[in-house]
């Protein structure tokens, strides 16, 4: 049994992780990894464009950030965004192989970007605004860390352009799509074990 202690009459939910939180967070991360793998495999056209002019790739990175934002929105426990993003990174490393171990560090940094936003709202607010901000946080974290780790030799203007594109992508793809997915999932009933599936504030 998961050991959670909630006092009778205490309305606030426990922030401790239950077994179902851990397992569902893990599987969400893996599933998002598989989806993104399918996306990358099927859309070589986009890869061609981003190869020709790399900063455009920033518009595309939001897909990487879904695991963290979606995991955070569903699980609603401290660390969920970082955990999901790191695990998704490990899965994509194992499936794809063109990114080394550093992808795990990248996953942690991106997850942290979303996690800080959830923390800012004390793990109590889960509306569209928070989701978009979490996407923004993840996008900025990604762009800044990629600029340091990989794009370090680009001229500064291009680095700034990359940050802008990644931020747009983080808000639009990771933020908005994750929020829509969370709402859709709540309506299917699969989230009945989670606050996300039961509360009206979705």
């Amino acid at each position: 049994m998961a050991t959670i202690k909630t006092l009778p009459g205490n309305r606030s939910r426990s922030l401790e992780w239950r077994v179902v939180d851990i397992v569902v967070a893990s599987v969400i991360a893996v599933a998002v990894g598989v989806v993104f793998f399918a996306w990358s495999a099927g859309y070589s056209l986009i890869s061609g464009i981003t190869a020709a002019f790399p900063p455009i790739g920033g518009l595309y990175v939001g897909g990487w950030l879904i695991a963290g934002v979606l995991g955070g929105l569903i699980i609603r426990k401290p660390g969920a965004a970082i955990y999901c993003e790191v695990l998704a990174a490990i899965v994509s490393m194992a499936l794809g192989t063109q990114w080394g171990l550093l992808v795990i560090l990248s996953g942690a940094i991106q997850g942290l970007g979303a996690e800080l936003v959830f923390l800012l709202f004390l793990y109590r607010r889960w509306n569209l605004g928070v989701a978009l901000l979490a996407g923004l946080g993840a996008g900025l974290a990604l762009a800044i860390s990629e600029n340091i780790l990989y794009n370090a030799l680009w001229a500064v203007d291009w680095q700034l352009l990359y940050v802008l594109f990644a931020a747009i992508s983080g808000v639009g793809i990771a933020g908005a799509l994750s929020w829509l997915a969370m709402r859709g999932l709540a309506k299917t009933g699969v989230l009945s074990s989670f606050a996300a599936g039961r509360t009206a504030d979705v």
């Binding site: 569902v24 599987v27 989806v35 569903i74 997915a181 999932l185 699969v190």
Partner: peptide
């Protein structure tokens, strides 16, 4: 993708 995530969460909940 949504369909896959629904199935994944169902499976995960049962697995838990």
């Amino acid at each position: 993708a949504f369909g896959l995530i629904v199935q994944a969460i169902r499976r995960a909940t049962r697995l838990a």
